[in-house]
Nucleic acid binder design. Structure first.
Length: 415
RNA sequence: GCGGGUGUAGCUCAGUUGGUUAGAGCGCCUGAUUGUGGUUCAGGAGGCCGUGGGUUCAAUCCCCAUCACUCGCCCCA
């Protein structure tokens, strides 16, 4: 085995794997188009500030998982760990506020220096959407409806469940934060080390701790839903009502929180139990403060991102391969003639395979291996009369047809 | 970043209680006379037994380290 390994946490996508990713991307993009979302491609790296200032200095992503480096010009650059910040920056850079609302779809690689696991890589791929410039809950509903639609189109409706929560507005969150702090302070000595660390930084995160001891304490913790102010309550109620109207099943999970600081109000997550520890397949929420925080005009937004690798693992659709038609010269003297025919046939839109080397037997063997449905065999005897042999590789039947009719015959028979 | 498991042919895996030339299945290549694939038969190629170090007369096997994958924690998509 060669010692040339790819960098830890990165993977090559060969034909089959790439096809599966492609399928996810295609379905997601086509479905998003039905909702008026257009693809937006932002750079794979940004100035470090774009992420550092927006994701929150308590998030692990910023504190220890970013690929940050200095350019020759002395600028600090970071490989994007997620997509929203880049889209928000593009929104500001391009003055898109005047075109709001903006509906953006994106796909591509993201980079996070984490310990690799199943469904977790250092370079991974996401699809995502952002709906920027709509204040009301209709936007949240539309974006969740789109996510549901895409997952359904990928055949994942049954393997995935939607959880929903409200993180409230700034006022509600601040209020709840202090209530939570008071509650957890009492149990300070019993909390896990991880949660103890979160107590000072982001006590909300304690709510989704998996630690046994923590869970017991959390059971009795105050409920965020009881501490939302009227506006926040009305907002999440409207979202829930909208989902019900659209018959989108969900469960309210008051313990659901977000790792990134820019979220408010609606937070949601589609999870699965069949992917082990990395159960989150698609997640997102509302980020009304983000664009202003980045220095743009105060603009609300809501969106989500999904991991392509995780979706591809869940979606076991059998991808059908196109079957080619093989052109086979009987002798090497006919190679040039065959090559010409191949080119003509391809120009008519047919999928033609043509071996670079080998005698007739080898070429037919390869045709079979490529799952070709038919072979056009060029032999001296037939060519004298301007004919070729057309062999159906499934049935083994073969006819002699005129060279001038090949394209038409193939198209009507196999096209 | 922390803890557990794994690492032998392109793939899936045996195996050596430390001892000459490390095996199977699949795949790959060649052949079974004339211009015909799939099936069959015969033959063949391909392994520094993940990498580096240690113990030993001797290591693929034991010990240490390291790298990668994997499971859990963490994090999140």
């Amino acid at each position: 085995m060669s010692n040339l390994q790819p960098v830890r946490g990165t993977h090559d996508l060969l034909s089959e794997g790439r096809k599966r990713h492609r399928h996810v991307e295609d379905v997601a993009m086509a479905t998003s188009a039905l909702y008026g979302f257009e693809e937006m491609a932002t750079p794979i790296f940004e100035f470090t500030d774009v992420f550092a200032r927006t994701l929150g200095d308590t998030s692990d992503i910023v504190t220890k998982e970013m690929y940050t480096f200095e350019t020759k010009g002395g600028e600090s650059i970071t490989l994007r760990p997620e997509g929203t910040a880049g889209v928000a920056r593009a929104f500001i850079s391009n003055g898109l506020a005047q075109h709001a609302p903006i509906k953006a779809f994106y796909k591509g690689p993201m980079f996070r220096h984490e310990r690799p696991q199943k469904g977790r890589q250092r370079q991974f791929h996401q699809i995502g959407v952002e709906l920027i410039g709509v204040e009301g809950p209709q936007a949240d509903i539309e974006v969740i409806a789109l996510a549901t639609h895409i997952l359904a189109s990928l055949g994942l409706s049954a393997s995935v469940t939607l959880e929903l929560n409200s993180l409230g507005d700034i006022e509600s969150r601040a209020a709840f934060r202090s209530v939570l702090l008071d509650y957890f302070k009492v149990y300070e000595s019993d909390l896990s080390d991880d949660s103890l660390g979160r107590l000072g930084k982001n006590p909300l995160r304690i709510l989704d701790s998996k630690d046994e001891g923590d869970r017991k304490i959390i059971e009795g913790a105050p409920d965020f839903a009881d501490h939302l102010n009227d506006a926040s309550k009305a907002f999440i109620d409207a979202v829930q009502q909208g989902l019900s109207d659209l018959s989108i099943p969900y469960t309210r999970n008051v313990k659901l929180v977000r790792g990134l600081d820019y979220y408010c109000h609606t937070a949601f997550e589609f999870t699965t139990t069949s992917l082990g520890a990395q159960g989150t397949v698609l997640a997102g929420g509302r980020y009304d403060g983000l664009i202003k925080q980045m220095g743009g005009p105060s603009t609300p937004g809501v969106g989500w991102a999904a991991g392509i690798e995780r979706l591809a693992m869940l979606s076991d659709v059998s991808l059908t391969k196109n079957r080619p038609i093989s052109v086979v010269p009987v002798s090497s003297d006919l190679t040039r003639k065959a090559q010409t025919l191949v080119q003509d046939l391809r120009k008519t839109g047919l999928f033609i395979e043509f071996s670079f080397t080998g005698n007739m037997k080898k070429r037919l063997k390869r045709a079979d291996k490529s799952n070709a449905r038919a072979a056009v065999i060029l032999g001296e005897d037939e060519l004298k009369d301007g004919n070729v042999v057309l062999r159906d590789l499934d049935s083994g039947e073969q006819d002699i047809i005129s060279l001038s009719d090949v394209a038409q015959t193939l198209t009507s028979k196999y096209g």
